Simulated scan of single mutants.
Amino acid sequence: MEDLPTLYAAHLSRNLRRSIHTVRAYRATAVRFLAFMSRHVGGPVDRATLIKAAPSDLRAYLAHRRGEGLGNASAARELSAARDFLDWANGVGSAPRLKGPRVPKGVPRPIAPHEAIALAEEVGEAARLEWVGKRDWALLLLLYGAGLRIGEALALTGGALPLGETITVTGKRDKTRIVPLLYQVRIAIEAYVAACPWPAERAAPLFRGVRGGALSPGVVRAAVRAARGTLGLSDRTTPHALRHSFATHLLGRGADLRSLQELLGHASLGSTQIYTAVDAAHLLDVYRNAHPRA
């Protein structure tokens, strides 16, 4: 029989240029869905079996996954991935229609500018090695100052050097964009590169771990988690929150949505428009706190 999950993953990666994280997650859903269907129909599952899948089968699978503890948001993603897998296996539009769980749209939670700087300082000062402290300071400044996703920052190589007024970033689906680089961020990165015990080779990661390999996102998240506890910041203060802060603060200073879309690397303007809700929420807070009749 065909190894459908592997073929599906190759399709996502090669044809749709999805990120490795998306490919991994969607392939895992395909594996789980096939295992469930095999038990559900009482035998091996191939494309001929999948083309007969009905809404009741997807509903049963979703109920099974909900029984394993999935919340609404995770269940909605699981349903979307299972339907995409069925569309791939049997042709676009062939997956059964099924309305997924309702997931309220969340509003990004940015942190204040002084909190972003304090967070970067705390993470840098808490590092045991001086060059690691310079690395963490530079990395977090880059996330806040340029609005990068952590994966985009860690994917940078020595080929980005020498730094100029802009930096080229590769985002989701291998789309590249040019982002302005603040002078303070450039100085921080250059100080880290000068202190790093490994040479900045063109094909090597720009941000390295303590053993010289690529820096893991988990290491960065753990350092931020410890720092936010020390500073008394919200649990929502994550490396990705620095990107939200970048977007919200630019919008609050008058940046237009189209320009912000380009800077963030969003495929659609709809993804960028969530920040208008953040700005409106901030204005309402100011009004309620300041107006005598609020």
Score class of each variant (00 low, 15 high):
S13N: 12
R14S: 08
N15Q: 10
L16F: 06
L16D: 03
R18N: 02
S19N: 04
I20N: 03
H21T: 03
T22A: 00
T22F: 00
T22L: 00
V23A: 06
R24G: 10
Y26L: 02
Y26P: 07
R27C: 02
R27P: 05
A28D: 15
A28H: 11
A28R: 09
A28N: 12
T29K: 00
A30M: 12
A30S: 13
A30Y: 11
V31E: 15
V31H: 11
R32H: 15
R32D: 15
R32A: 15
R32V: 02
L34D: 07
M37G: 07
M37V: 13
M37R: 13
R39P: 06
R39M: 08
V41I: 13
V41Q: 10
G43A: 01
V45R: 01
D46N: 15
A48Y: 08
T49W: 08
K52R: 15
A53T: 14
A53E: 07
A54M: 13
P55L: 13
S56K: 11
L58P: 14
L58A: 13
R59S: 12
R59Q: 11
A60M: 06
A60Q: 05
A60D: 11
A63Y: 02
H64A: 14
H64L: 12
H64F: 15
R65Q: 15
G67I: 05
E68C: 08
E68V: 09
L70T: 11
L70D: 11
G71Y: 09
G71T: 14
A73G: 03
A73Y: 05
A73M: 05
S74W: 06
A75Q: 02
A76V: 06
R77N: 15
R77K: 10
E78W: 06
L79G: 02
A82M: 01
A82R: 00
R83M: 09
F85Q: 01
F85M: 02
D87I: 03
W88E: 07
W88M: 09
W88C: 11
G91Y: 12
V92H: 06
V92Y: 07
G93V: 01
S94F: 09
S94E: 11
A95D: 04
P96S: 10
R97V: 11
L98V: 05
K99S: 05
K99M: 08
G100A: 02
G100M: 01
G100N: 01
P101Q: 05
R102I: 01
V103F: 02
P104Y: 03
K105Y: 00
K105Q: 06
G106A: 15
I111K: 04
P113G: 12
H114A: 14
H114V: 15
E115L: 00
E115K: 00
A118M: 00
L119P: 10
L119A: 10
L119S: 04
A120P: 13
A120K: 11
E121Y: 07
E121C: 07
E121L: 14
E122F: 02
E122D: 04
E122P: 07
E122W: 01
V123W: 01
V123G: 11
G124E: 02
E125Y: 09
E125G: 09
A126S: 12
R128A: 04
W131Y: 15
V132I: 14
V132R: 04
G133R: 12
G133M: 05
K134C: 10
R135D: 03
W137E: 00
A138S: 15
L140A: 12
L141M: 12
L142K: 08
L142Y: 04
L143Y: 13
Y144T: 12
G147E: 12
R149N: 11
I150M: 10
I150E: 09
I150S: 10
